[in-house]
Design a protein around this nucleic acid. Structure first.
Lengths: 390, 390
DNA sequence: TGGTTAACTCAGCTATATTGAGCTATCAAG
DNA sequence: CTTGATAGCTCAATATAGCTGAGTTAACCA
C-alpha cells in the first residue's frame, strides 16, 4: 500500500535475500526447473544458484522433483515449490464481517472462514482480525514458523483524500498506517492493499496472469477498482490510491456519470431493485443470468459501452498485455461481458503478435478479495527487491 | 522503451554499481550534501559511502563544495555534482529534421542543433543521427570519455500495433529494435523513448518534478501523450506504448472523439486554420495568445472540458503527486490551460495535505522533446537498479 | 568402449560492506 | 581559555557471498 518500499543500499546480506527471492520466483514460474537453467535465467553463476538451492531446500521452501531426461549431458535435477513450505493468511475486512483464508506456497487455498464484525472501531477491528488470523492458522494446522505473513484487504482510498466523505473507506485508518499497525498487533509481517490490487496479484500467483508481467485487473467489488501490475510490480501511485477507475466520468444515457455507477456490483443490484427484483447474493445473480432475466440483460446491455470505454482508457494509458475482469460477480456474467465488449480497432492493444487475449476472466466469486489478500503475501515472498519494507 | 530492463542477480560488483548510482542520485537531489547524510539516506555505512564518494571524486562526477557550518560536531564536507563530469546527447527524430542537444550532468543545456532529414529510410535516419551526434559532441567540446550516452526520442507507438497505419510512428522501426540498433551504430549507450516519456524524465532531472517520485506528464506534441513516472521509474507498459492518452475517447460537441483531436498542437493548428488563420510556429501561437485572438480563445474554451476530463482520468487511475503540462506550445497557453482547468472535487487527488499543486507547468517550447531525450541519459546514470539493460 | 556434452561440486579467490577504535573539527558551557 | 560533547571522518580488521577454474558425474552417441 502506498510508497512502502524504499530503494536501499545493497550489501552482501541484502544481495543474498534478493537472489534467494529471485531463484524462488524462477522455480515458482517454471513449476519445475534445474539449477543450470535457473543460473542462466538469473545471471548468477551455477555455484551461487547451487548454494541458494541448498538453502531453500533446508528451509523446506522447495523440494526435489526427479530428474529431467534431456538430450545430452547429465540430466538436471529438477526442483519445485514445496506447497507445505509456507502458508499465507489473507484477511478481508468488510463493513459487517471479517473473511479469512489460508493459502499454501503454491497459492492453493487450504482453509477459509467468515466471522461477523461487531464493533467497527479501531480496537474492535484489530481484535477481530487477530482472532480470525489465529483461528484460521490453527484450523489449518499451520506451524507457527511456517506462517509467512498476513495480507489484509480493506476498502480504499487510504489516507485523507477528497473521497473520504463517500464512506467507502475505513475512517479509522485515516490517521493510523494500517500495515504497521496490524504488523504490531499480529506479530507477523503484514501487507495491506485494496481489493483490486489484491485480486490482481492473486491472478499472478495462481491464476490467469501466471507468466504475465504487465497487466491490469478490473475488479468488480461494491464499486469498480483497477489493479495495475507492471513488470511484476504493483503500481501503487503516490499515495497508494491508484486504480480508482470507478470515479472516472463516462457518458451514459446522455449525461456524464461515474463509471462505477453503471458498472459494478452495487450498480447491478440497484438496477435490479429499481426493476422490482431484490438480489443481494452472487447466487441470485447467477440464477438471474441463467434464466436470462430481462432486467439483468438490460443492465448488461447498458454496461457494455461504459465497459468498452474503460477498456479503451486502460489499454491506451497503460498498454498492458491483457486486462483481467473479475471480482464479486458470477463467472457467467464476466464471460458475457467479455464476449460482448466492443474492443477498439484503433488501439495500441490491437497488435498482430499478441500472446494473450485482450480480455481475460479472472477469479470470481465472493471470496476473490480474501484469497487475493493471502496472495499478496505469497507474492511478496517471491518478489526480489533490494528494498526494505518500511 | 518497453521492457528493456530485466531484474538480475546481485553480486558484489553489481551491488557496488547500484550503491554508486544511489549515492550519485542523493547528491543530485540534495544539490550539496555530506557523506554522513548520504549514509543515513541510503542505509549504507559511512565507510561505504566514503569509499564510493572517493570513487566518484576520482571519476570527476562529483566535486567538493566547501563545508557546512552545522550546529554541532565536525562540519561535514559537502559534495555536489560536477557539471562537467559527464554529458548526455539528446536526439529527436522528426519527420523532416533531426534536433540534437547536449546537457551537462546537472541537466543544463550546453548546445543545441538542428539539421534537415533528407532520407526517411533506415540508412538515412541512422546516418543523420550519427552525424548529428558526432557534430554536436564536437561543437560542445565534449571529450569522448565524458559522453554518457545518447537519448533518442522518436514518435511512437513502438512495434506493431493497431495504430501503425496512422502514420505517426516511424515505420522503419517496426521490425528493428531501435535502442540496440542505434547503440550499435553510435558506439554509445542508447535509450529510446517517446516524446512524452522523455519530457517527463526531463522534469525530474532539472525541472518542476525535481523531488517528485510519482507524477504524470501530459505532453502536447503533434498529438497528446502521457509520460508516467512512479517511484522514480518510467512506466513503460508491456510493449513500451503506455501513455497514448490522446486516443482515449472524450465527448466534444455532443459526440465522442479522440482526446487529441481537441487537445493537441495539431488540433489548435487545424482549428485556427479552419478559422482562416494559418499558424505553424510556437511564436505564432504565442503572439495569437498575447493578442487574445478570438479563434484561439475559442479553442482554449473548447479544450477546457476535455482537459479536465483527462486530468480526472489520470488522477483517479494513477494517483500522482502532480500532473505536469508541457510540450510544444508557448508557456502562456499552458498557464492559461492550468488556470482554467476544472478540477474535480470528488477525487483522490483532493487531499488536504498535498505538497505539490495538482497541476504544474513543465518545460515548454519546441525543444522540449530534444532536451528530454538527453535527460533520459542523465536519469539513467542516476537511477540505481540491480538490473542490466538488455 | 570411448568420446562428447552438460550438470554439478569443491576449494580458493576476490569484491565489497560492516564493525569498532580512534582521530579531528567545531560548538557550547564553565 | 579550557573542557566536554557532538558529529564527521579514517584506518584496520572481519564477514559475507558470489565468482573462477579444475575436476567429477551421468547420460547420450558412435
Amino acid at each position: 500500500m502506498g510508497p512502502n518500499q524504499k530503494v536501499v543500499g545493497a550489501n552482501a546480506e541484502r544481495s543474498r535475500s534478493h537472489n534467494r527471492q529471485m531463484v524462488l520466483d524462477r522455480v515458482r514460474l517454471a513449476g519445475r526447473i534445474g539449477r543450470a537453467e535457473v543460473a542462466r535465467g538469473t545471471g548468477l553463476s551455477t555455484q551461487a544458484v547451487s548454494n541458494i538451492i541448498a538453502d531453500l531446500l533446508s528451509d523446506g521452501l522447495i523440494r526435489e522433483c526427479g530428474r529431467l531426461a534431456s538430450v545430452r549431458g547429465q540430466p538436471p535435477v529438477q526442483y519445485g515449490l514445496n506447497p507445505a513450505g509456507g502458508y499465507a493468511v489473507g484477511v478481508e475486512i468488510r463493513p459487517d464481517a471479517i473473511f479469512a483464508a489460508v493459502l499454501d506456497l503454491t497459492g492453493a487455498p487450504v482453509a477459509t472462514s467468515r466471522q461477523a464484525l461487531r464493533a467497527g472501531d479501531l480496537r474492535g477491528v484489530t481484535e477481530a482480525v487477530r482472532g480470525a488470523t489465529t483461528a484460521i492458522l490453527k484450523s489449518a494446522r499451520v506451524p507457527e514458523e511456517r506462517a509467512l505473513g498476513v495480507g489484509i484487504v480493506m476498502p480504499g482510498p487510504f489516507g485523507r483524500t477528497g473521497l473520504s466523505e463517500t464512506g467507502s473507506a475505513l475512517p479509522i485508518f485515516q490517521e493510523v498506517a494500517p500495515a504497521e499497525w496490524f504488523s504490531q498487533a499480529l506479530g507477523l509481517p503484514v501487507v495491506v492493499e485494496n481489493d483490486a490490487n489484491a485480486a490482481a496479484v492473486a491472478e499472478r500467483v495462481a491464476g490467469v496472469a501466471r507468466g504475465l508481467e504487465s497487466y491490469a485487473y478490473l475488479y468488480f467489488g461494491n464499486g469498480l477498482g483497477l489493479g495495475i501490475v507492471e513488470q511484476g510490480r504493483l503500481f501503487a501511485g503516490a499515495f497508494g490510491n491508484s486504480g480508482e477507475i470507478g470515479h472516472v466520468p463516462v457518458m451514459a444515457g446522455g449525461h456524464s456519470v461515474p463509471l462505477e455507477s453503471v458498472l459494478s456490483r452495487l450498480s447491478v443490484q440497484r438496477y435490479m431493485q429499481e426493476g422490482g427484483a431484490s438480489i443481494d447474493s452472487s447466487e441470485g445473480l447467477a440464477a438471474a443470468f441463467a434464466s436470462r432475466d430481462a432486467r439483468l440483460m438490460a443492465w448488461l446491455e447498458r454496461a457494455a459501452e461504459p465497459l468498452s470505454n474503460a477498456i479503451t482508457i486502460i489499454e491506451n494509458v497503460l498498454d498492458p498485455e491483457a486486462i483481467i475482469l473479475g471480482g464479486a460477480m458470477p463467472d457467467a456474467i464476466f464471460d458475457h461481458l467479455i464476449a460482448h465488449a466492443v474492443l477498439a480497432e484503433q488501439s495500441v492493444a490491437q497488435r498482430p503478435n499478441r500472446s494473450a487475449p485482450r480480455l481475460l476472466r479472472g477469479h470470481s466469486g465472493p471470496l476473490t478479495g480474501t484469497l487475493g489478500a493471502a496472495a499478496l503475501v505469497i507474492n511478496r515472498a517471491f518478489t526480489p527487491r533490494i528494498a526494505a519494507a518500511t
